[in-house]
């Protein structure tokens, strides 16, 4: 089973990298960009096929390591 974890900064936390990307896109001539947030994508290959157990495990991984919940949110997608 594949677990896909997206980690993003919480709303309200300044994201200097996202800001820099937005500025660069504007200087390249892309218009209509209201905002950019940069995040991380982490793909996990899990041995466990039970989605419930897997989700609980990945949830725990996010809490304890993959995300810093002081400033980051995460979402988990399971596949297979």
């Amino acid at each position: 089973m594949i677990a896909r974890v997206h980690v993003t900064l919480k709303q309200g936390v300044l994201d200097p990298q996202g800001k820099a990307i937005a500025n660069s896109l504007k200087s390249l001539g892309f218009s209509g960009i209201a905002g950019v947030r940069q995040g991380k994508y982490i793909e996990l290959e899990l041995e466990d096929a039970d989605p419930e157990i897997a989700r609980a495990a990945v949830e725990d991984m996010c809490q304890r390591l993959l995300a810093n919940t002081v400033i980051e949110d995460y979402t988990i997608e399971l596949d297979g």
């Binding site: 200097p16 990298q17 820099a20 810093n68 002081v70 400033i71």
Partner: peptide, 9 residues
Amino acid sequence: GVLMRNATL
């Protein structure tokens, strides 16, 4: 708190 990327990047 946390230590984030420097504002200058």
